[in-house]
Every structure is written in C-alpha cells, then in structure tokens.
C-alpha cells in the first residue's frame, strides 16, 4: 500500500526532524516509569509510533531496510523474555514469581533492588509493546515479509 516515498519536502523534513525527539521522549518515559507517570507500555507505544511514522513517510522499500519487520518480531519476543526471566530468576533464588527483592544483582539491596527490578520489567514491557505494535501495523498494511 505504502509503496513509495512521500514527495512533499515539508512532510519529509518535519518527519525526519520529529522522529529522534519522539524516540528520545519514549526512552525517557520508559526509564522514568518507576518513579513517575509513564512506564513500559506508554514508552513502548511512543517508540512504535516513531517507527510507524518512518514507515508512513519513507515508503515500504526504504523503511523496511531501516527497520526490518523481523526485527520487530524479535524485539517483541526478547522483551517478553526479559519480563519472564525477571519473574523466574527470583524464584531460583528463593523468592516468589516477580519478587524483585531476590534478584541476584551484586552491590544493591532493599528498596534500590526492587526499584531496579521494576526498571528491568519496564524495559521488557517497553520492548514487547514496541515490537508488537510495529508487527500489527506491518500485518495490517499487508504484504509478505
């Protein structure tokens, strides 16, 4: 459907200008998620939006080279694996599922350990949401990859 590059110079420059800032804000939302509004889901959606914008204005050919659809599938799976491991690893060290207090991170303990645990889980969720949304978009606009 979106076969070629969008011809208007205004759209091209605005989009290429916006995308880095969207991504920067997305990373801020993910990393800030455990002590402020935001988190993995919101940040992941923003990251996905930046890639979707690129797909919309660059056209399929170029955008698929910059961000291949298979990478989206892989990132989604990696994100969920991070989440799953953050759940399983504390169990191997004597805690419950997702009990961050038992994460084997050297040099941190107590509240700091729990807060790092939330960050790890948020990173996983962010990647998963990012990958999944790009995947849904790629499947909607059709075409085998």
């Amino acid at each position: 459907m979106i076969r070629q590059r969008y011809q208007s110079i205004i759209i091209q420059s605005i989009c290429s200008l916006l995308i880095p800032f969207i991504q920067l804000f997305a990373i801020y939302v993910i990393l800030h998620g455990h002590y402020g509004p935001g988190g993995g889901f919101q940040g992941g959606v923003l990251l996905a939006v930046s890639v979707l914008l690129q797909r919309l204005y660059l056209g399929k050919e170029v955008a698929y080279q910059k961000f291949p659809p298979k990478l989206a599938l892989a990132l989604g799976a990696v994100g969920m694996l991070i989440f799953g491991l953050a759940g399983i690893v504390p169990m191997a060290f004597g805690g419950s599922f997702l009990d961050y207090a038992y994460l084997p991170l050297p040099g941190v303990s107590g509240a700091e350990l729990r807060y790092l645990g939330i960050l790890i889980v948020e990173l996983g969720i962010g990647l998963a949401v990012f990958g999944t949304l790009v995947l849904i978009f790629d499947n909607f606009i059709g075409g085998r990859w």
Binding site: L73, A77, M91
Partner: peptide, 25 residues
C-alpha cells in the same frame, strides 16, 4: 506456600517467546 502453580505456567510462557524468537532463524 508453594511455587508449583507458577511453575506449570512459567515454562510455557518462556518457551512461547523463545520459540517465536528462534523460529525466525
């Protein structure tokens, strides 16, 4: 307290994402 209930679920969830990941190659 026993973690057996989550141990039924966890291998399936982890294998699901791992299988998707390696299935690409």
């Amino acid at each position: 307290m026993s973690s057996l209930s989550i141990l039924i679920l966890a291998p399936l969830l982890l294998a699901s994402f791992l299988a998707t990941l390696v299935g690409i190659w």
